[in-house]
């Protein structure tokens, strides 16, 4: 799993699940906070599909934290102001970088759960797909 995949799962997971994973790491390894959770802004950069220019749409609030675990740094950035979550995510990232993260099975379970939820919601939207039938008068044109 790459950083994007792991952070996507953790950012969407229940806070208690993320806490449990971070607690399991902290029970065996010492994690030191290098940069305490802090709010800042992230600007959304898009490409305009009409003229292919880059532009800024607007900002989101993110929280960021950095921890160190036995010499390995871990960083987390996530939308919102949930400082506990971002700190737990930084601990998990540091554990990954240190090579001591052992809960990939749990991450995969969460990913499947999230994928299923998104697919169910998508099905709800797809129920509103229109099936057009040409009327006689239109077909005649």
């Amino acid at each position: 799993m790459n950083k994007r995949e792991i952070s996507k799962i953790l950012a969407r997971a229940d806070a208690a699940c993320v806490r449990a994973m971070a607690d399991a790491i902290k029970a065996e390894h010492e994690a030191v906070v290098v940069k305490a959770p802090e709010k800042s802004l992230t600007m959304i950069q898009l490409r305009d599909p009409v003229q292919e220019t880059l532009f800024y749409l607007g900002e989101v609030i993110v929280s960021e934290a950095v921890v160190e675990l036995e010499g390995a740094k871990g960083t987390a950035v996530v939308m919102g102001d949930d400082f506990n979550r971002v700190l737990d995510m930084a601990v998990i990232d540091a554990a990954c970088n240190r090579g001591v993260f052992r809960q990939f099975a749990e991450l995969e379970r969460l990913a499947k759960e999230q994928e299923l939820a998104a697919a169910r919601e998508n099905a709800l939207f797809l129920k509103t797909m229109v099936n057009f039938t040409s009327m006689d008068s239109e077909a005649a044109q």
Partner: peptide, 21 residues
């Protein structure tokens, strides 16, 4: 927002990839 610093720009996004509702 004016009290917060800006830390990042996102990677350039293409709206073609959006999850459509």
């Amino acid at each position: 927002r004016s009290t917060l610093k800006r830390s990042y720009d996102t990677r350039t996004l293409d709206t073609a990839s959006m999850r459509i509702v």
